[in-house]
Amino acid sequence: MAAIELRNIVKVFSDKRRGRDLLTLDNINLDIEANDFVCLLGPSGCGKSTLLNIIAGFEQATSGRTLVDGKQVERPGSDRGVVFQQPTLMPWLTAIDNVAFHLKLKGVTKAERYDRAMEFIDLVGLRGFEHHHPSELSGGMNQRVGIARALLMNPSVILMDEPFAALDAQTKLEMQEELVAIWQKRRCTIVFVTHSVDEALVLGNKIVVMTKRPGRIREAVNFDMPRPRDITSPEFNDAKRRILSLIREESTRLAQAS
């Protein structure tokens, strides 16, 4: 049994202002195995966020089935940790209180909450900043808090929606390396949305290329290049060429169709 099973997912948004329907996801079928690091790659507007939100339970598919650990997804829940594009932390809570928020909701005592949260503060390298508020931390640091918050729930899967898109190039590289290190250390299942071919190839061991409007799965490519991955190596560039040609075929097809 796969960790995530998507069966014939269709999503139609009704555009009320123009009085017409917009087919956003067209018959998505995908299996994601436990401990996979899957990158959903596609141009913006192709429905990546929509698909992730359906897995998270934030949105309902128009038809089709979404199973996580064999259970039908009906609503959001702590078995699926989400890292948002913007950190989306509670601005009135300190870093450690944000990380431990899930435990607070479960009624765990403060001492135990902090004890458990500190482990994840350490994991994302934020020791010394645990009592800072989000407004006192940089974008990258806040995103680390967001990752720690998701990891602490020990979810079956972690869903990440372009979490590094708003960061500067240098911070982005650091965060990518650390995320891979965390994934290797903790062996979790990650679904990572990105529109960057490089990012997908640095992170994923499976790259799911999506097509634009309506969103379909073009191809799921396995990529088992050993880590750390050298982005200037021939192996990396071969893979990049393959992915880019998949995308290019797609755009020529679209150009001919229109």
Binding site: G77, F101, L105, M153
Partner: peptide, 23 residues
């Protein structure tokens, strides 16, 4: 998205109001 984050962390309806919406 804060409300979504709360739901993701398992907040009940009451907790959503007292721990997220009100603050």
């Amino acid at each position: 998205n804060l409300v979504r984050a709360g739901a993701m962390m398992g907040a009940s309806q009451r907790q959503m109001l007292t721990d997220i919406v009100l603050p």
